[in-house]
Amino acid sequence: MTSLIAHAALVAAEGSLITHIRRHAELISQAGNRIPDDWKYESSFHMLLALSRRFTPAPHPKGMIGMPEGACYSNSAQYARDHQDQGLAYAEGFALTAEDGCYVPHAWTVRPDGTVLDPTWDDDPRRAYIGIPVADTSLWPFDGRGIVHDFHRNLPLLRDGLPENALADLGRPLSTDAPQ
């Protein structure tokens, strides 16, 4: 019964994150800003809706020491690189904090089973993670600036999309009705 309640809470938290991302995409679309017709995505929110997956929080390995707060992008890229032998991939998008229910741009690592290993935050099971799992290590942001939330990295992705084979097939789909 406890597992069923935890699953329902996770699905609700994920739904809240998806709604947050979708609202921002809709506001951008309604603002009437024109992008060139040949661009792949109207905004980073549109890209997130098209490419993101759901990830399940999971306990940290015994003895794992958290990395510096405020450096989630480089923490996650570094941790994924250091643990590639375990099949970890870098992921970036939004997370829902457990403490105060805020939607935060964030990065984490993903295990092959689609569970989160967050090297920056603790492993509170009340968190939710929605984001893009990136398999291409050349895209991982070791400088701390992110992929989705950094203008200079994001702009070519909005225009051209992600390179072929850049996405990792990890996590669970958002839904079949997520607008592009």
Rank of each mutant, 00 (worst) to 15 (best):
R34V: 14
T115Y: 01
A80S: 14
V11S: 06
A6N: 15
Q180F: 09
G161H: 04
R172K: 15
E14Y: 04
R126H: 15
Y103Q: 14
L167V: 03
A168E: 05
A178Y: 02
R81W: 09
W108Q: 03
Y73P: 05
D113Q: 01
A98M: 10
L170P: 02
N33L: 13
A91D: 10
D150E: 12
A128W: 00
I130Y: 00
G63N: 11
I18E: 10
A50V: 12
A95F: 03
D118L: 00
E42T: 14
A58P: 06
L51Q: 09
I21S: 02
T56W: 03
K40A: 14
R127D: 06
L48G: 04
S76K: 07
T109G: 03
D150F: 15
Q180Y: 05
P173A: 04
D113P: 00
H20M: 10
R53Q: 15
G32N: 05
D136K: 00
A128L: 06
T176N: 15
F142P: 13
N33G: 14
N154Y: 10
L51W: 06
H7P: 15
I65G: 15
S52Q: 07
R54G: 00
F142H: 12
Q30A: 13
N165C: 11
F94E: 13
H83R: 05
P119Y: 05
R111I: 02
Y103I: 13
M64H: 09
T2D: 07
M1F: 03
L17E: 06
S138H: 10
F151H: 14
W140R: 02
A95R: 03
Y103L: 08
P156L: 15
S74A: 13
M67A: 13
E26W: 11
G70M: 10
E26V: 10
A77T: 13
Y90H: 00
D123P: 00
D82R: 09
D113A: 01
L4M: 11
S76V: 09
Y79M: 04
D100Q: 04
R153D: 08
M67Q: 13
D118C: 03
T115Q: 06
Q30G: 05
A71D: 09
P133Q: 11
D123A: 03
G114C: 04
W140S: 08
V134G: 01
S44I: 04
D118P: 06
W140K: 09
D150C: 09
R126P: 08
T97N: 08
E14C: 13
E92I: 00
A50T: 04
D82E: 14
A13F: 01
A166P: 05
P61F: 11
P125Y: 02
G32Y: 02
D100R: 05
K40M: 14
L139C: 06
D123S: 03
T19L: 11
D160S: 12
R159N: 11
A98P: 05
T115P: 10
W140E: 12
A71F: 09
D85A: 14
D177T: 14
A50L: 01
L48C: 15
D123L: 02
N75F: 06
T176V: 08
G161P: 06
M47E: 05
L48Y: 07
L170T: 02
K40C: 13
A13M: 01
R127W: 06
H83G: 12
I65M: 13
D85R: 04
G87P: 04
I18S: 01
D113E: 07
A128E: 06
Y41V: 06
L4T: 15
L48N: 06
D177Y: 12
A77E: 01
T120G: 12
G66S: 15
T19Y: 00
